[in-house]
Design a protein around this nucleic acid. Structure first.
Length: 601
RNA sequence: CGGGGCGUAGCGCAGCCUGGUAGCGCAUCUGCUUUGGGAGCAGAGGGCCGGGGGUUCGAAUCCCUCCGCCCCGACCA
């Protein structure tokens, strides 16, 4: 029996000043966590208890489709060199040396290690498929930890890895995870959406994220209120309204126009009396390409390449899409001297006409990427690569060419849903990512040389999927979606306790005994209960109960003498009088009803 | 990494500009009263004022430096 008077539940009346988002404030105030450093937290009793419940759900569902492993958190350098990620992970990887000077890192993910096991142990197609998972601490040196447990440098992750003989097998493993994840998040009481996600620059054919809408989230989700379309902004597309073509002037060929001081899209649009959609915007980058693995030095040196992107003036470059289109690892914008070198012009007056460009992305010269939305347009305006001059009557394809044409822009709210026959208008919302499933392909099995014999005795490379769930983010998202001024309430499946029995006046021996007996009865009924037996005023105990996320409270107070107690649903802030001998049954019914509702969604 | 802010008791803050050896509220401990929504009264404990260096007779306060934490940005020239 858990007695509050003996527990360490350090609740705070006020939140520390540096907590911004609701979940951060309440996790601190409710005594779930305490901060140790930037993005590093101590989990106290209530926090750990809730996380353990989440982990139990995850384990229960994962055991239905896979096998639990536990890999080390501290990892040697070699596997990372083999996969090319020793350099590829950059500064996000915590690195250290042992006493001999050998290099090690703290695990931020385990594709290399799992693939290493597969390579060493799997020999035959008969051993496939395999799904291996673990629930383990991950370390990532985030550039900017923030928002309490939402973006941290140490966290708990369920990560799993599937190995299959072929694409059909991978599809099965992927679907198994999809269903397991839906079960996990449903049982955890989250209102989530599944969205199409970017599958990354390197390999990967399909990817979905499990998202919970909240303003505290860092991801932007595009969705259609009419059909079921939903995608991460990094991946989302839309149907564009056709732009009315501009009439050519003069002979219809590019014409140099003096545009003094018109360095922004708005200036140019005003000068030519056109919409920004008819101006060509240029955003120029230096793109980092990883050298890849090298048997001698560990990895070949990284290289920087000039990339110029052109798109409609009213559109935004989507760097994730751009990275994928050109196969680069990182981007930074060009400096003035680089603009001069690659585009021979100053910022504000850059354009595509007359540029020499590479035939393939990331060559020795300049890579020119044009957004799809410019194809087929005519008589546009663009910079002339000359201070205070622009060109008009510019027609893509006729007046300039490119290395690659691709979708490199972010959709805007209000654009038309990309689904055929759907006329919905897209909306954009903030969300937090709680899970991600990903068809990896042979990215790791190939580079690390994992092979099995197929039924014809031929060597083949197994293909992989990888799948992650952020354990703490389930807790965080649950708090974000259910809180008010007084605190938060968790689904009874993941709450540290399902019920708190509050004895309003512990000095009253009869009340105390009633509370004790009730708590025992609840426990016997399989309900996770804590007895608030503190010698505090009733108000203090009520406030704490409202704060700490326990979904049900039973007040044992004045009416107990006449055989009644109060049953309070925290979510509904609703109190009902129930006969003492019926309350166990009633609580149980409510908890069961809650689970049924979750499953029904 | 760039910009901004902050660091004084467990938490929230004042004091700093204009140097004189630290204060308020909450919390904690003791006693009495109180006991259904963060009680009242009385008393008590708790601080190398983030670290180091400097200026000064004297530094929480001024200067230098380091560290830590928070927020914004790190795509539209």
């Amino acid at each position: 029996m858990h007695r509050w008077s003996k527990l360490f539940i350090p609740t705070l009346r006020e939140a520390p000043a540096d907590a911004e988002v609701a979940s951060h404030k309440f996790l601190l105030r409710a005594g779930y966590i305490r901060q140790l450093g930037a993005g590093i937290y101590n989990y106290l009793f209530l926090g750990q208890r809730s996380l353990n419940k989440i982990i139990a759900i995850v384990r229960d569902e994962m055991d239905k489709i896979g096998q639990e492993f536990l890999l080390p958190g501290i990892l040697p350098k070699d596997p990372w060199v083999e996969s090319g990620r020793w350099t590829g992970m950059g500064d996000n990887m915590f690195r250290l040396q042992d006493r001999k000077g050998a290099e090690l890192c703290l695990g931020m993910t385990h594709e290399e290690i799992m693939t290493g096991i597969a390579r060493n142990e799997l020999r035959s197609y008969k051993q496939l498929p395999q799904i291996w998972y673990q629930i383990q601490t991950k370390y990532r040196d985030e550039p900017r930890p923030k928002s309490g447990l939402l973006r941290v440098r140490q966290f708990t992750m369920k990560d799993s890895y599937s190995f299959d003989l072929n694409a059909a097998g991978l599809d099965t493993s992927y679907k198994l995870h999809d269903q397991a994840y839906r079960n996990i998040f449903t049982r955890s009481g989250l209102k989530f959406v599944v969205v199409d996600a970017d599958s990354g620059a390197m390999g990967g054919s399909q990817s979905q994220e499990f998202m919970v809408y909240t303003d505290a989230g860092e991801d932007l989700i595009v969705s259609c209120p009419v059909c079921r379309y939903a995608a991460n902004l990094e991946k989302a597309t839309s149907k564009l309204e056709p732009v009315t073509e501009m009439e050519p002037t003069g002979d219809g060929m590019p014409e140099l126009v003096h545009t003094p001081g018109c360095a922004s899209i708005a200036d140019v649009a005003a000068f030519f009396k056109i919409s920004p959609a008819s101006d060509i915007k240029c955003v120029a980058y230096m793109a980092l390409k990883h050298g890849g693995p090298d048997s001698k030095s560990g990895s070949k040196p990284d290289t920087w390449h000039g990339v110029a992107t052109f798109l409609r003036g009213d559109h935004q470059v989507n760097e994730t899409k751009l990275l994928g289109a050109i196969g680069a690892a990182e981007l930074r914008t060009m400096q003035a001297d680089e603009l001069e070198k690659y585009l021979h012009g100053p910022a504000g007056y850059l354009g595509p006409v007359g540029l020499q460009h590479d035939a393939k992305p990331l060559g020795d010269g300049l890579t020119v990427i044009v957004d799809k939305s410019l194809e087929g347009r005519k008589n546009l305006v663009c910079g002339a690569n000359k201070l205070d001059y622009h060109l008009r009557n510019v027609t893509p394809g006729r007046d300039f060419t490119w290395t690659l044409s691709a979708d490199i822009r972010s959709v805007n709210e209000g654009e038309a849903c990309p689904v055929d026959d759907c006329d919905g208008k897209l909306v954009v919302g903030k969300a937090v990512e709680v899970g991600h499933i990903f068809k990896l392909g042979d990215r790791y099995t190939a580079s690390m040389g994992a092979r099995v014999l197929d039924e014809n005795g031929k060597e083949v490379t197994p293909i992989m999927g990888c799948y992650g769930i952020g354990i703490e983010r389930i807790l965080t998202a649950a708090i974000e979606q259910s809180n008010d001024a007084n605190g938060f309430w968790l689904p009874s499946t993941i709450a540290p306790f399902q019920v708190v029995v509050t004895v309003t006046n512990i000095g009253d021996a009869a009340l105390k005994e009633t509370g004790e007996k009730l708590a025992v009865a609840l426990e016997d009924a399989g309900i996770d209960v804590v007895l608030d037996d503190r010698d505090e005023r009733a108000g203090v105990k009520f406030k704490d109960a409202d704060l700490v996320g326990i979904p049900y409270r039973i007040n044992v107070g004045k009416k107990a003498a006449s055989g009644l107690v109060e049953l309070v649903s925290r979510a509904k802030a609703q109190s009902t009088d129930v006969a003492l001998d019926a309350v166990v049954h009633e609580v149980k019914a409510r908890i069961q009803e809650e689970q049924l509702l979750l499953k029904a969604d």
